[in-house]
Simulated scan of single mutants.
Amino acid sequence: MARFDMVAFDCDGVLVDSELATCKVLAAMLCELGWNITLQETYSAFVGRLVRDEIPMIEQRIGRPAPPDFYQQFVARRNAALAQGVAPVRNVAAAVERLHAAGMKFCVASGADRPKMELTLGKTGLRPWFEGRMFSGMEVARTKPAPDVYLQAAQVMGVAPERCLVVEDTPTGITAARAAGMTVYGYAELMDAQLLLEAGAERVFDDMAQLPALALA
Rank of each mutant, 00 (worst) to 15 (best):
A93G: 02
A27S: 12
D53H: 11
A28G: 07
A21C: 01
P68K: 07
A93R: 12
C31F: 03
E54G: 02
D17P: 04
Y71E: 13
I58T: 05
R78N: 15
P65W: 10
T38M: 11
V51P: 01
I55W: 02
Q40I: 05
V25E: 07
Q73R: 15
A83N: 07
A21M: 09
R64V: 11
A95L: 03
R64S: 13
F74W: 12
Y43C: 10
L33H: 00
L39M: 02
A8K: 08
A45L: 14
Y43H: 13
R52L: 14
R90W: 10
W35E: 12
T22M: 07
A66M: 11
P56F: 01
Q73S: 13
A8S: 14
V86P: 06
P65V: 04
A8M: 02
V75H: 00
S18Q: 04
E41G: 10
T22C: 13
Y43P: 05
L30E: 09
L82Q: 12
F46R: 09
D53F: 06
R78T: 15
T22L: 12
T42E: 08
L26Q: 03
I37A: 07
Q73V: 13
V86I: 11
V51C: 03
E41T: 03
L39D: 06
G13K: 10
E19T: 07
Q84P: 00
A21Q: 05
S18G: 07
V16N: 04
V47Y: 04
C23D: 14
E59S: 08
Q60S: 15
L30A: 04
G48D: 09
P65Q: 10
C11I: 02
Q60G: 08
